[in-house]
């Protein structure tokens, strides 16, 4: 796959990692700090968790405004690389706890979902198309 631009200064092709995204978008990493090397395949943006369960896939970075603890289980289930909680929403304590337990990087930003998706696209990440 050649969907991903190289971000490395060494000119080597490599996939975007969650750490790259956190840095580029100036996100706060509120959980899952040990998993920032997770590689990202596609992007997915949705606030309906049933839709994410049906449509997202392994390695996706998921943009949402939902902060309920169920987002962690959904991410675990689908193999999502990271969750970006957009729009300044604050994840519930239980959500942070479960993200650390499950090793799911949980990023927050004041930027709205629309802008987060746009920035991710600029980094070379494309939307996952449901199959």
């Amino acid at each position: 796959m050649t969907l991903f631009q190289s971000l490395g200064s060494d000119g080597m092709d490599r996939r975007v990692t969650v750490g790259d995204i956190a840095k580029e978008l100036e996100c706060e990493v509120v959980a899952g700090k040990s998993c920032l090397d997770n590689e990202v395949s596609f992007g997915y943006s949705s606030d309906l968790l049933s839709d994410v369960m049906a449509g997202a896939g392994p390695g996706d970075v998921w943009v949402t405004v939902q902060v309920h603890q169920n987002i962690i289980a959904v991410a675990s289930l689908t193999g999502i690389s990271a969750i970006i909680v957009a729009g300044g929403a604050a994840p519930a304590d239980e959500t942070v706890l479960r993200a650390n337990e499950e090793g799911i990087p949980l990023l927050t930003t004041a930027k709205p979902s629309f802008e987060v998706a746009g920035r991710l696209y600029s980094m070379g990440i494309r939307g996952r198309v449901k199959t």
Partner: peptide, 11 residues
């Protein structure tokens, strides 16, 4: 609940 949050939270 199921549509928006995927499943019944265990809590």
């Amino acid at each position: 609940l199921i549509r928006n949050l995927g499943f019944v939270p265990d809590t």
